[in-house]
């Protein structure tokens, strides 16, 4: 083999490797994306069931309920137009609080109940997740109640 052919082979090998890696990466990406939905989209049936998605909004004041002594907790997440009840079993993050913006990751069990496997709150007080911000910015629906 001439040096030139060898180098060509090397380049072809690397290209092959890179494209293979890209293929794997894009496949992994497709399978592991989770889409964000706001409570209105959930209420209008736009969010799929049985798939991992994220739902975010503000935790409604006074909605956090837990059976005494149980890890099971339920709370409402709202975008001030519609509300989704989130059910979660486990330790909530430190910054979880009523009136705080949160994002829950999990699956939709029914139109109004979301079973979360993870609840995220940010460690910055002034924080509101950008998705939540954006969904809050949409115009209010007709006849929305306060």
């Amino acid at each position: 083999m001439t040096p030139r052919r060898k180098r060509l082979m090397l380049v072809v090998g690397i290209l092959l490797g890179v494209s293979l890696a890209t293929l794997f990466a894009t496949r992994a990406l497709r399978e592991n994306l989770s889409y964000f939905y706001d409570p209105t989209q959930v209420a209008q049936g736009e969010a799929p069931r049985g798939r991992s998605i994220r739902v975010g909004g503000m935790v409604t004041k006074g909605s956090v309920k837990r059976e005494s002594g149980s890890l099971e907790v339920k709370f409402d997440v709202t975008d001030f137009r519609h509300t989704v009840t989130v059910s979660y079993r486990g330790v909530l993050p430190d910054l979880f609080r009523e009136g705080q913006g949160i994002i829950a990751h999990g699956q939709l069990a029914s139109d109004r109940v979301f079973v979360a496997d993870e609840v995220l709150a940010k460690h910055d007080e002034k924080y509101m997740p950008p998705e939540v911000k954006q969904s809050l910015k949409k115009p209010m629906n007709e006849g929305a109640t306060p």
């Binding site: 509101m128 911000k133 910015k137």
Partner: peptide, 16 residues
């Protein structure tokens, strides 16, 4: 996009 979304919840009018 972020810039245009900045004022977010402040723009929601209170029904009150």
């Amino acid at each position: 996009k972020i810039g245009s979304n900045r004022l977010d919840i402040r723009e929601i009018k209170s029904p009150l």
